[in-house]
Every structure is written in C-alpha cells, then in structure tokens.
Design a protein around this nucleic acid. Sequence first.
DNA 1: ACAGTCGCAGAAATCGTTTTCCGACAGGTG
DNA 2: CACCTGTCGGAAAACGATTTCTGCGACTGT
Lengths: 359, 359
Amino acid sequence: MASKATIHDVAQQAQVSAGSVSRALNNYPHVSEELKNRVLAAAVALDYQPAYLAHGLRRGRSNSVGFLVGTIANPVISTIFEAAAEALSTEGFTITLVSSRNQAELDVACLRLLASRQVSGLMVSSAAEAPEPARELIAELGIPTVLLDREASAEAHVHAVQSDHASSIKEAVAHLTEQGHRQVAFLGGPADFYPTRQRYAAYRDALRALDLPRRRELCRFTSFTERAAYAEALLLLRSAPPPSALIVAGNIILAGALMALQDLSLVVGRDIALVACDDIHLTRLYRPPITAIRRDLKLLGATAARLLLQGMQEGAGAAERVITLPTELTLRESTQYAPTRLPSAPAGGEEFAGVALAR
Amino acid sequence: MASKATIHDVAQQAQVSAGSVSRALNNYPHVSEELKNRVLAAAVALDYQPAYLAHGLRRGRSNSVGFLVGTIANPVISTIFEAAAEALSTEGFTITLVSSRNQAELDVACLRLLASRQVSGLMVSSAAEAPEPARELIAELGIPTVLLDREASAEAHVHAVQSDHASSIKEAVAHLTEQGHRQVAFLGGPADFYPTRQRYAAYRDALRALDLPRRRELCRFTSFTERAAYAEALLLLRSAPPPSALIVAGNIILAGALMALQDLSLVVGRDIALVACDDIHLTRLYRPPITAIRRDLKLLGATAARLLLQGMQEGAGAAERVITLPTELTLRESTQYAPTRLPSAPAGGEEFAGVALAR
DNA sequence: ACAGTCGCAGAAATCGTTTTCCGACAGGTG
DNA sequence: CACCTGTCGGAAAACGATTTCTGCGACTGT
C-alpha cells in the first residue's frame, strides 16, 4: 500500500509528466516554483515513496554501503558499526550487513555478494587478514572501502582507520615493570590478525627495551572463541616459571583467560596482574577492576563513516587515507598491587610458584 | 569490473538472446541442455554477476530482509540477529540493517525507510512497544514480519518469537523464598517493554502466590542506559527496609546495578542475593558468579528466521504464528548463601515487616 | 498428407526511475 | 523584425534484468 504509488501516479495527479516529477522532487535547476509545489502536494497526497530499486538501477548506485564483519555478536565490533551506521544513515545511506561468521574462507564470498548488490561503499572488519584473496578482491572491485583496524592498503580507494595499540601496550609493560614484574605474558588473537600483530610487536619491543626476559612460552595466540582462549591461557599460566603478569587481547579472549585463572585459583591482582585490551563492562565491574586499554569505539566508527563518505564523494579521485586513533591505558586494581608471585616476596613467592607448578 | 558484464554480454558471447540467458540461468523448463551449457560457460567466462537492482526491480521483490533494532551494540540483540542473519543468508537473502538508536520516535521513520527499500521481510526488535504507531505501520505495510520478544500482533502477516520469561522468574522468586528472602526487589527495563512486562507480572504473581510483601518501592523501571539503571538501583537499594534479594532485567541494567552495589559496598551473595535476566560473560565470570536466566539466543534468532522464511513463502496466505521458547534458571553463588541482611535475626524481621506495611 | 501439440528460443514489453533530447515560449538585443 | 539566450517541461531513451508473446520446426495421430 505505502509503496504502491509510482511516479506516474504522482505525475497524473499533478497533471505533469513523470520526468518533471522526478526533477521537482530531486531539486533540479530550472523547475518553476509553481510546478514544484504542485508535484510536492500530489506526492504528499498519494504518500509517494520512490521505489528504491528503480532509483538505484537508473542512477547506477544503490545508496547503500556494505558492512562485512567477522561477527556482529561482539560488543566491540557492534559498537563501532552502530556508530558508523548512524553517521551513514543520516547521509541517506542504507546498511547491508554480511557476516562471514569468523571464517576467513567466507570473506570472499561475502564480498562478492555485496558487490553484486552494487553497494556504493564498503566497510570491512573481515575475519582474516593479510595477503589474503579478499584484499585482492577489494582492490579490483574499485568500490570505496574503509578497513577497520586492519592493515592498510596501497589502493587509492581503500582507506583505513586504525587504533594505536602499540603505545598503550608499551605503557602497560612499563607500568608492570615498575611494579616489579619480570615475567610478563601475552595472550593474543590469531597471529596474522592486525591488532594482534601490532600489540605483539609493541609487547616484544617493550620487553627488549626494558631488558625483560623474552620467553616464547609466555606468548600465545588463539582464535576468537572462549574455549580456545581458555585452553591457551591454561598452557600459558602453567609454564614454569609462571608469569606474574598477563596481557590479554580482546574481550572474548579475556573471558577465556578469566575462566582459566579461576580454574587455577589464581586471584587477579594478588596472584597475577592483568591487563585487558578492550574496556568492556566486565573489566570495570570485575573484582578487582581490571586495568584496560581503552579506545573511543564510537569515534572509531564515526571516523570510518566520515572517511567512507569522503571516499564515495570524490569517486576514484584522491589517494588513500589512513587515520590512527589514540588508545589510553586505564589503570585499575588488577595491576595495582604487587602480586604474591613476584620474586620480591621470597618465601611466599616460592611457595606459590611451587603450587602453580604442581598444578 | 566484476559487476561490469551484463546479461547481454553473456548473450552475445553465447550467441543467444538475452531472454534465453535468463531462462538458462534461472533453471526454467524447456531449456535445452546444449543451450544451458553454452550459457553457463559464457557466464563463467565473463564472471557474470546478475545485477541485483535490475533483478529486484523486475521481480518486484528485493530478496533482502530488513532488520529494525533499537541498538545493535547489545550482545544479546546482536547474537540473536547474527543467528537470524546466518539462516537468512543461506537462503539467499541479504540483510538491511537499521537502528532506531533506542529512540521510539525513530521507529516509524526507520520502518518507512525499510519499506521504501522494498524489503521482502521484516525482523523487528524495535525500541518501543505497544499501541505505538510503529505497530500500525507494520500492520498496514503488509510485509511478512517477525517480532522478536515483543507483544504479538493479530495481523496475519505478523509473527512473533518470544521467550518464556515468566516461568523462570517464578522459579527464581521461589528459589529466593526457599533461602529465606522476603524482601525481593525487581529492577526492570521500561515499563511498557514486553519482556519487562512479562517479567514484572511473573514477579508480582509469584510474590502474591508465596505471600511475600509487595512493596512498590522495591520495584523500579529504568531505561536501557547504564547511568539510569545505576540511579534507579541506588534508590531501590536505599529503601527501608532494604531488599535482601534483587532481580535485574537485561545486561545493561545489570551493569548499572552492579555499580550501585559496589558503590554501596554491598557484596553480592553476602549482603544481597542477585538474579540476572540474561546470561552473559559478566554473570558467569563475576565473583561470585551470578545466578541468571538463560535462553538460547541462537535458537531464538534461527527460529525467527525460519518463521520469516515461511511467512515470505506463503505470501499473505496463512495466519500469524507465535512461538514461545523456554528459558532456564541457572543457579550460581550469587543466590546460594543466605545474605547477612536476612531477617533471620528476628527483631530485625519484625521491624522490616512493619516498615513494609507502612510503605 | 494434414491439422494439432509441444519444445525451444528470439523479439519485444515491462518494472519505476532518471536523464537526455528537443521544442516552446519569453524577453532582451541589433 | 529577425535573432539569440535562457527557462521550462513533455516525450522518449536509457538502466539490466524477467516475462510475455510469438513463431518456427519437429513430432504425433488419424
């Protein structure tokens, strides 16, 4: 009913041609006030809604941007995209959402789907990374694209918004060192994943700069499932000598790590210091509150939207842009007190280490 | 490049007419094997992707379903929609996502937008509820629709998937009563919100059935922001006599409530028993773990998708369907031990009751 | 051998817009 | 008065698919 009236109905009602209706409604030059008013009145009277499909077909663009996500069921991702969606929709764009279900091999199929939908822009927070076929496809598609927290591309139409993970990681390691920690562990996402690479590199550099021991077994990578993160965290925590501090990337991984800590009866802030890489409800509300690296997710989404809007406007014009947004280390109790595992408390420390070793 | 080849290019390559290409590709009857092969080969050679817009325009349907959400930045919502999106996309549908930013007055505009996009189906988890104009619009739009955890509609094309909030709430109240609690508080979402109404009604009925005091000030409703939930929780917890148990609806509200509890130095499981209405990472990982009402969010989403697919297939055919899925109360330590606030100290108990009567 | 089906495929109409093309008309100028 | 310039709006051609219409052969039954 609502979408039943066509432009011809409006034209008939207003006693003009269909072309004039189109011109009047789209604010073309050289349209008389009088005609415009007549058309507007008729459109309102008939509750005319232009048929999007026909509009897009003729115009050659769909006025919709494609969102490719690994999963939307992650509060960090969904917050970013919500902000981006808001900015884009106020500019008249619709969002077409596709999830590759965290399966890298589905990325390409999802992109093709979006391309066949003739999206006018692309926002990508895909499952996988790097030399991947998905990147090539994005490059050859020629659609203005913004990568979210992914390795930037050299293509002119492919922009990127990233977070400065490195500086906060370095800050965190420095902070832990000041508290006396020397065995600092790192639990990251998939090793080829851009944020993980950034964080890991910063972690490694910081250890080197501060002359801390760099032990391979204190550094593990896991997929984005709680179960996998739990398993890796267990392995990591059981290594000898055990870590006295742990940096975990991502909120799902944090959940797995906390489960592992609880299963090993390790109390955060007492037996081990903990730093999380995204600030979610859990980090603030956990007892003790967990030190976390914060970033403005809404700003990230909004910035990405702005970049994409620019990219879509200038067509295949200017060169690619990369924007890096700051992160901020928020200290909380999980890193505030020197854990008992620290070698500074000699006897107790030994004992705890012994227990940990014995499982 | 990828979407550059049209059906005419394929026709030319295969030395047939455009119509035949369409028939061959869409598995029409009366197409010779030989022609079909030739067309298929040509299509592959040219990497032909049918133009979605033209296809939809001619067919009259867009092969995309609209998702209307209050916000996607809520893990419960996004998990449901992720599951629904997966089921729908395997059937060849695309998702068009619109967020009304939790503003009830935007619901209608969002629906109109989706309607103008000629979506073939609608999935609604809108901000607001009830006699609202949005419901009327959905009714008159005539698009097959599934409401997610919302009041069902009498319209033939409007289906619903709901959760059986009531039974678990009753179970929770019974459990609390068994532990000796008499001052059971309830912190819900907006009062006109379907899940809140269901939960509140069940809570009230359970109190009545178990002959517990029903005090208005122990029952508060809040919007879906952490700040608001925090404020209401403070008021609720400060009422005299204070509640010894608290049931909170929704994950955002839980976060606000936990903040309030921490600010008042009330320890969950010791000073107050706590029941949450959605099982998220936070409930499982909080110390102590929080008793929660669980439901299978993926099943909810998948069921909604199934309902919508049915609805879109049978057109304006059969009548509306409502499916109610079970919930399950998972007991954890937050309700396991009798809190210190319990009137088991008799004098206090009398006093509490007296105050309760006086309102 | 002839009318009646049936399978197949080309030509053309169609979906609802936008856009191009073109003609009509008004007003100012040489 | 002829001529240009510029505004306005109708008619028709796109856009790229699907679907209807139509006709051509081949096959069947009598």
